[in-house]
Amino acid sequence: MDKTQAPVWVIADQIDCRILSVSFQLIGRARKLADELETSVEAVLLGDNVREQTQQLVAAGADTVYLANSPELYFYQPELYTEIIVKLAQKQQPQIMMLGSTSMGRELAPLVAARLKTGLTAHCIDLVLDKDRILEQKIPAYGGLLSIICPEKRPQMATIASGVFPKPEMDAERTGEVVELEVPIDVPRRIETLEVVREEPKGVPLESAPIIVAGGAGAGDPDGWQQIADLANTLNAALGCTRPAVDEGWADLETMIGQSGKMVSPECYIGVGLSGELQHMVGIVGSQIMIAINNDAKSPVFEKVDFGIVDDGREFVPVLIEKIKKYQEKKVTC
């Protein structure tokens, strides 16, 4: 097969027979790349009772859907999923393979990449073709944006978080081919998913919140963190954070915003005690109004927001909460 004609792949991700939105976003991007490369988009869907979902992948832009549908595949099973994808990739020789930065994608991608002896980039914030039609995979690092390429090995593999690419227009009239795969029987079963337990998320969900208050290392201690949480409460906002706040144990990993966390676009973002690291800031570029509060006037965060306040968050936030409450009371009585 002519290398340039090799397809662009997306490994779709599903939970309880529902395809995750990140998979559609990736197909949207794959479609653009494939059109530039004059080749096809192929999606791979593994699960149980997911046959009816294949049309959605076609509607999003896939030309072919490879489907493995079996009760054994209801949960993500590392060995079985890896084996199916590796065998198919060896046969179809995709030039690009994209996976969502979901809990499954983050484990499955390196398992597949190592078996295929190819490169893999983590949590890209953009994917473009360079002049040689090689995939440039953009990753924020230390105040800059790195372009990483995989010049020789194929496929060129990347994981991408939900929200990086928009959901494409769904065209229900689009037609595509569905190819059913056999589930291999000779795969070792050294590891098994016994059970998946989902808990109700706490607080206002970041993805849909009109206002997000995010805190970082500048909170200083659990009390300082509580003040930032109180500010979020007062505004009925979702509470987000940067990696240091997770490292300190103040905030859950689930609430981390940025390249390896959530990608969000609220109407208003308020960052308290954080320095504006690019890994965090790429997660909120879609925000309409951005405000930063930091005690260091030279903090790089002030180059990335609309309004800046130089003050110690621990002193300023309680005053701000009082003022907001007063305004809200006044508004109600008017």
Binding site: K117, T118, G119, L120, T121, D130, E136, P140, G143, G144, L145, L146, S147, I148, I149, C150, P151, E152, K153, L278, M290, F302, E303, K304, V305, D306, F307, G308, I309, V310, D311, E315, F316, V319
Partner: peptide
Amino acid sequence: PTVVSNLSTTESKREVEMISGTR
């Protein structure tokens, strides 16, 4: 398999207005 091909510095598209005064 992977190499860094380029490094770009990102430019902020926002112009900040600093809010000053007493707390």
